[in-house]
């Protein structure tokens, strides 16, 4: 590794092995890059910005990666960092900071890997399968203007809290990337639990779960074998028990001839 003069003794020199892939049909490969004088206060994506500026200056095309809000809420970013979805901390890639690494580290950066998330270019994948799962039933059917007064249906705090916790899902896909089966059960379980805990979600509860699971399987996501890797990787800490809720709802729905 090249040694550099650091502007601050806390700064780091790092070796990066980054997945480059020209397009969907390209085979792709890991390419090695060196970056130096990286501040621990930088976010991981700002470190990649620095690398991209260097590449641009050298005449090499910058690495394509997704990010938008960069504050951990939009769910657009998502990288496999040395084998961990979103890296070593429990947060999104954009909120991961370089103080989680140390001088001299080698970091491998790959896209999410799943049949249902085809690679578009470099580190960018297509997650539209998630949208199609929501289209299948991840909603409450209420047209604008037809809503009753908001306080007409009280919601017990415990149920409201669990609905909220499940609704925190940002749809980033880390659960799928972390799962050995590339299953999206945590993503789906979060939605089924969010809507199923609320009185407003009851009328469509059984049809919803059947329709969403069927779309999930159709998209090519794998089955759940309860490894729990999804919940560990989830930057929002969605608990694994939403999958139990989903399975329970699915069984009830099937018994009803859903």
């Amino acid at each position: 590794m090249a040694t550099s003069t650091k502007s601050d003794p806390k700064n780091m020199d790092l070796t990066l092995r980054i997945w480059r892939q020209d397009g969907p049909s390209d085979r792709g490969h890991l390419q090695t890059y060196e970056v130096s004088d990286i501040s621990p206060d930088m976010s991981f994506l700002e470190m990649l910005d620095v690398l991209n500026e260097q590449l641009n200056a050298k005449g090499e095309e910058p690495i394509a990666f997704d990010s938008d809000c960069r504050e951990g809420i939009c769910g657009m970013c998502g990288l496999m960092i040395s084998g961990h979805a979103h890296g070593p901390e429990k947060t999104t890639t954009c909120q991961l900071h370089m103080r989680s690494f140390k001088d001299g580290d080698t970091i491998t950066v790959e896209p999410w890997r799943a049949d249902a998330f085809p690679i578009i270019k470099d580190l960018v994948v297509d997650r539209s399968s998630f949208d199609r799962i929501i289209q299948a039933g991840g909603f409450i059917s209420v047209n604008t203007g037809s809503a009753p007064e908001a306080n007409a249906a009280p919601v017990p705090k415990q149920k409201a809290d669990r609905a909220f916790q499940s609704a925190e899902c940002i749809g980033c896909g880390a659960c799928v990337a972390a799962c050995p089966n590339a299953s999206a059960m945590l993503f789906m379980g979060a939605k089924v639990t969010h809507l199923g805990e609320l009185p407003q979600g009851q009328p469509e509860r059984w049809a919803r779960v059947v329709s969403m699971v069927s779309q999930h399987d159709h998209e090519g996501f794998g089955g759940c074998t309860n490894t729990g890797a999804c919940s560990v990787a989830c930057p929002k800490g969605i608990p694994q028990d939403v999958i139990s809720t989903l399975n329970k709802d699915l069984r009830t729905a099937m018994r009803q001839g859903g």
Binding site: V142, P154, A163, F164, L198
Partner: peptide, 22 residues
């Protein structure tokens, strides 16, 4: 005020008090 009604009907989990109201 209509916005709040609409969002609650969609399942938006607003903060609630112990009595279950918003």
């Amino acid at each position: 005020a209509n916005i709040i009604d609409q969002c609650v009907a969609q399942g938006v989990p607003f903060a609630r008090e112990y009595g279950g109201l918003l």
